[in-house]
């Protein structure tokens, strides 16, 4: 990791940490919490897609596994929440391997459809065999550790964003390391990677696992925050939303995933007036981004900032 990356990290999370001091409304904080949860999934997809070049339209599947497994374990089997979350992550990792191993030969469209199919199968399973079927189930305990339960909106906000910070720190470190470089190399050429001794299939499986772990963690945190879940939160639409966050923010940059998650989560709240139009608005944003701002928000803005700074330096 470079010093600048770390500075950006510190500044951003101090800013997020200060937000609750100025925002009184629980409603606004709740949107902040959902932004954080979505950011976790988006960071995972960003590493998978932006770095490693593997498409996934099935992140909702892992998100759903995370939510359901940890909730079921804590509600019906009396697992401590933290153990439920970890178990869910193990299940998701296994699911990722089951998906990734046969999908290794697939690229592009085929991979997109295969992951989409995986996500939809999980959705069907949740609908058919999940507690409560399509209407879901509730009374899921809040996150608690050592007898302390995180309940208020403010606490939850800090809790979620601390986890986002940890995950982000880990992810920046990973993507700026040797591993990150190899992932980008795989994006450009599988053949060349193999020729210099990189075990491409194994690497692909590992990235799939990583992105699944993030999504699963986010799913668990979601379920223990809202305390009531139903399959509709884990449909194809969620996978597409996450995809949109990564693309709108900028898929080659982890901050893009975070920014995209915040924008796409906050946006529908701003567009409350046109509530029936959300799908249309999403669709247009995604299409226009793809066509005219292919790099995404964060790279475009950071280039602008660099230009301004460069201009100032030139003047002195």
């Amino acid at each position: 990791m470079k010093k600048e990356d770390f500075m950006v990290f510190i500044v951003f999370f101090i800013f997020v940490g200060l937000l609750p001091l100025f925002i009184e409304s629980n409603y606004a904080l709740t949107i902040g919490i959902f932004s954080g949860i979505n950011a976790l999934v988006a960071i995972g997809l960003c590493i998978l897609m932006g770095y490693a070049g593997q498409v996934s339209l099935g992140q909702a599947g892992f998100y759903g596994i995370g939510a359901y497994v940890s909730s079921i374990l804590s509600v019906y089997y009396g697992f401590p929440v933290i153990l439920g979350i970890l178990s869910a992550m193990i299940v998701s990792a296994i699911a990722a391997v089951v998906l990734a191993v046969p999908a290794l030969r697939l690229k592009g469209h085929y991979l997109a459809v295969a992951t989409l199919g995986f996500g939809e199968i999980i959705y069907v399973i949740l609908n058919e065999w999940g507690p409560g079927g399509p209407s879901g189930f509730g009374d899921i305990p809040h996150f608690n550790i050592a007898g302390y339960s995180i309940q208020t909106t403010k606490e939850s906000f800090y809790f979620i964003w601390i986890i986002v910070a940890i995950v982000m720190l880990y992810s920046i470190n990973l993507t700026k390391s040797n591993t990150g470089r190899i992932l980008r190399a795989m994006h450009d050429s599988d053949t060349a990677c193999e020729a210099i001794g990189i075990n491409v299939p194994l690497l692909k499986i590992k990235v799939f696992i990583l992105s699944a772990l993030y999504a699963s963690l986010a799913g668990s945190l979601y379920s223990h925050y809202v305390t009531f879940i139903s399959p509709s939160s884990f449909s194809l639409f969620y996978s597409i939303l996450i995809l949109m966050m990564v693309i709108v923010g900028g898929s080659k940059n982890l901050w893009g995933a975070v920014a995209g998650a915040i924008v796409i989560t906050v946006l529908p709240e701003l567009l409350r007036k046109f509530q029936e139009l959300d799908i249309l608005v999403y669709g247009f944003i995604l299409t226009l981004t793809l066509m005219f701002f292919r790099k995404g928000l964060v790279p475009i803005i950071s280039e602008k900032i660099k230009n301004v700074r460069g201009y100032k330096f030139a003047k002195h």
């Binding site: 339209l57 592009g108 469209h109 249309l280 999403y282 669709g283 299409t287 292919r294």
Partner: peptide
């Protein structure tokens, strides 16, 4: 390729 996939998905959403 990635862009091609995305664009048809985004068209479907629109």
């Amino acid at each position: 390729l990635l862009l091609m996939i995305m664009i048809t998905i985004s068209v479907s959403i629109v």
